[in-house]
């Protein structure tokens, strides 16, 4: 991936994405490995890793659910939806379910305000959601994982 690129570090996000796709998150070992490939120091890469929303420095569940909490989703009932989701999964925002299936994280407007309230599951958008359609979505994700 970095071969033939004049400035390897411009590929930082792509390399991290690839590692995350494989391991789920960016571990210390992955970070050190990536930094080597990118001709950056681990610290330089850490500066990026801690800056971006979609780089996870801690283990996450098989499904990372980013719930939009910006103004349009808020106005369209996003708060109730998130409360329902968390209660159903038995976790708090930022946590992962004990079975390792779901992590729920807040995110700013994901650019689907015409489909508010909206969420991302592993970067795929779902919306507009109701409590019922959200329940169905969680059920189907569980089934897929089984």
């Amino acid at each position: 991936m970095v071969a033939g690129v004049p400035h390897p570090r411009e590929m930082a996000i792509d390399v991290v994405n690839r590692l995350q796709d494989h391991y789920g998150y960016l571990s210390d070992d992955s970070l050190a490995l990536a930094a080597g490939l990118l001709e950056m120091t681990p610290l330089e890469l850490e500066e990026l890793a801690t800056f971006y929303t979609f780089i996870y420095r801690e283990p996450v569940g098989r499904y990372v659910i980013h719930v939009c909490d910006s103004v349009i989703c808020w106005m369209e009932g996003g708060v109730n939806l998130v409360a329902h989701l968390l209660a159903r999964l038995g976790i708090q925002l930022g946590e992962t379910t004990a079975d390792g299936l779901f992590t729920v994280l807040p995110v700013c407007c994901i650019g689907y305000c015409d489909r508010a309230p909206a969420i991302l599951v592993n970067r795929k958008v779902h919306g507009p959601l109701t409590i019922e359609s959200l329940d169905r979505l969680v059920d189907s994700l569980r089934e897929d994982a089984a």
């Binding site: 400035h7 570090r9 411009e10 996000i13 929303t53 780089i55």
Partner: peptide
């Protein structure tokens, strides 16, 4: 070029930095 996701990356000079890793 895929971003890692932060609003400030839309600002021109920040975007240049982002593009350069």
């Amino acid at each position: 070029h895929r971003s890692g996701g932060r609003y400030i990356c839309g600002e021109v000079t920040a975007q240049l930095n982002a593009l350069m890793g």
